[in-house]
Design a binder for these strands. Structure first.
Lengths: 218, 218
DNA sequence: GTCTATAAATGGATAGAC
DNA sequence: GTCTATCCATTTATAGAC
């Protein structure tokens, strides 16, 4: 065996050896992401990933410590991608009804996208074994959206356009109205996503209800 | 953990030949249910179940065709148990606010019970492999509650106590308000259930909001 | 020589049969 | 209860690129 314990991973400088490293690493990540997102953690073997990425298993293990490590990196990458979708429009200039309609529709599309549903399934299935990941998912996803929108509701409250004493609770209500039981049925594989017209009507009814709760006038 | 006292059946009447092994069958079902609910499908081996039920693997396979078959029977048993919890109080004599408060609290407790959360996790994780089971879960759980409550809302609508043109949609809204984001956080393992006081306050705010949407006013 | 990729091997677990 | 074929995560011997 190895005489001593040489520190692995010293990629500081391009060094003398081979160079092509990142391409394979990325191929592994891409394959792992696709497979994990489609089938879950247990249903995918390291052989599957190696085959799909067209690399050998030793290559795979040279880039990632083990299956769990690869899973973590993969899922974290997917989660944090949502963070970059940060270009939420500036709703402050719109009327509350219009802003909520636009935001609600975006939220609906996001939450029920193929990817988000697959990710949610995995988070639920692995929440026991990977609590850190499910927390990261929540922070990067629901939490961020919630914080942003709570700020917007605060704005409306100050402008007396709505009466929202507790913006955090209010935006959770709005979000859950948008999700509805429909989200559960999709996650359980019982239904498909609404088409655009149905989605708009659904969001409209959520906005109507929300405004009835939080209108400045009673 | 695995509880269920070992029922030592005294063979009062040793029938001719083999007695029925319903006791063993039930022991297998109990053990499988406990293990599956606690750990999920993949994390439990048939050896685990046989050991926990104190039967041999041959006995196990004589009662059930294979692991998937046992899983199905087990989960179906759990799902249909909800159906027997049918003794929903008669809310028709109560004021809508009181009925919704009482129903909402029951719903909250049910949805966030240890068992329901575990079952939901399994349904989500296995919805791909066992679509029939997730459908059964939905029919026996959310669907039944929804149908019953939609009837109640219709009653209130006819009595002009509420204005609910679409009871099915309305009760879904109420249900999702009760669940809230809190349910997701519990399912993801990020939080524990509210205590009773918090739950009551939460339900109260849902009822208030719901009544603002569906009050017979103006 | 050093680093990297690959095929083949190892060891452990498991579903299901006898 | 034991046995076996299978699958899978991980390691090691080996060949190749720089």
């Amino acid at each position: 065996m190895a005489s001593s314990a040489p520190k692995k991973k010293a990629p500081a400088l391009p060094k003398s050896g081979r160079r092509k490293d990142d391409a394979k690493r990325q191929a592994i990540l891409d394959a792992a992401r696709d497979l994990f997102m489609q089938c879950g953690l247990d249903a995918v073997s390291m052989d599957d990933i190696a085959r799909s990425a067209a690399v050998s298993k030793a290559t795979l293990y040279s880039h990632f410590p083990d299956k769990d490590g690869l899973f973590q990196v993969t899922i974290i990458e997917v989660c944090t991608r949502y963070t970059t979708e940060d270009d939420i429009a500036d709703y402050t200039r719109m009327k509350p009804a219009d802003a909520l309609q636009a935001f609600g529709l975006n939220l609906y599309q996001l939450i029920l996208s193929e990817e988000a549903v697959a990710l949610f399934r995995i988070m639920v299935a692995e929440s026991g074994r990977h609590p850190k990941i499910s927390r990261l998912f929540y922070e990067a996803g629901p939490r961020r959206v919630k914080d942003y929108m709570a700020g917007l509701l605060k704005h409306y409250h100050r402008q007396k356009l709505l009466r929202v004493p507790n913006p955090q609770a209010a935006i959770e209500q709005f979000g859950t109205l948008i999700k509805g039981e429909h989200h559960m049925r999709v996650v359980l594989g019982l239904e498909k996503r609404y088409n655009t017209a149905q989605a708009k009507a659904h969001v409209r009814s959520c906005v109507d209800g929300f405004l009835k709760i939080y209108a400045t006038k009673s």
